[in-house]
Simulated assay, not measured.
Amino acid sequence: MTSVARTMKALWSAWWQRWPRWVAWATMLWAVTYASFGLACALSGTRWSAGAVEDVAAALEVLAGALAQLDPECGDPLRRADRRGRRRRAR
């Protein structure tokens, strides 16, 4: 592994370890973008077509079906990561 690759791997790891610091900003950026598209749609007078609404509903049904089939143990890595994060913050 080259030094550049090691540096990039270290930066990527550090970035993900600091996710509680940046996730709020990312969420706010997404919300502002989503709201601006909604406002532009409302002001321009264009509407969602019935076909687009049906496509979104079908996609959500597929997602709900896939999530319903997941084993509850699939969430174990997330729970373990959450516990580790809580212990670090408590120190």
Rank of each mutant, 00 (worst) to 15 (best):
T7A: 15
M28A: 14
G45V: 10
W16H: 15
A35F: 09
R88H: 00
A50S: 14
S44L: 08
P72D: 03
A81C: 03
A90Q: 07
W12A: 14
L67V: 03
V32F: 05
R84V: 11
Q17P: 01
M1N: 02
T46W: 10
E73Q: 14
A10N: 13
L60S: 05
Q69D: 14
L29Q: 04
E61F: 00
A24W: 15
A58P: 00
M28Q: 13
R6K: 12
W19P: 04
V4L: 13
D82G: 03
E73T: 15
A26Q: 12
W15A: 14
L39I: 09
L43K: 01
G51T: 10
W30H: 05
A31D: 01
W30F: 13
L60I: 09
R83K: 04
A64E: 10
L67K: 09
M8T: 03
V56M: 12
M8N: 11
W15E: 08
K9A: 15
V62T: 13
W16V: 06
A5D: 15
W16Y: 13
L67T: 08
A52T: 11
A64I: 07
R79S: 07
Q69E: 15
G45E: 13
Q69V: 03
Q17K: 10
L60P: 01
V53R: 12
G38E: 14
D55A: 12
A35Y: 11
A64G: 04
A58G: 07
T27G: 07
S36N: 01
R86T: 03
W19I: 04
W48Y: 15
W48T: 05
A5I: 00
R80C: 07
V32Y: 02
A90H: 01
W48F: 15
L39R: 04
A90F: 00
A81L: 13
V4Y: 07
L60A: 05
W22K: 02
L43H: 01
R87T: 04
R89P: 00
M1A: 12
V62Y: 03
G85A: 10
W19A: 13
S13R: 12
L11C: 02
A58S: 06
C74H: 11
M28L: 11
W12R: 12
D71P: 08
R47E: 15
G65H: 04
G75D: 10
L29V: 11
W25G: 11
A66Q: 09
T46L: 08
R84T: 04
L67W: 14
A57E: 14
A5L: 07
Q69C: 02
L43E: 07
E54G: 03
L43M: 05
G85K: 00
R87P: 00
L43A: 09
W12P: 02
D82F: 01
W25N: 02
A81I: 02
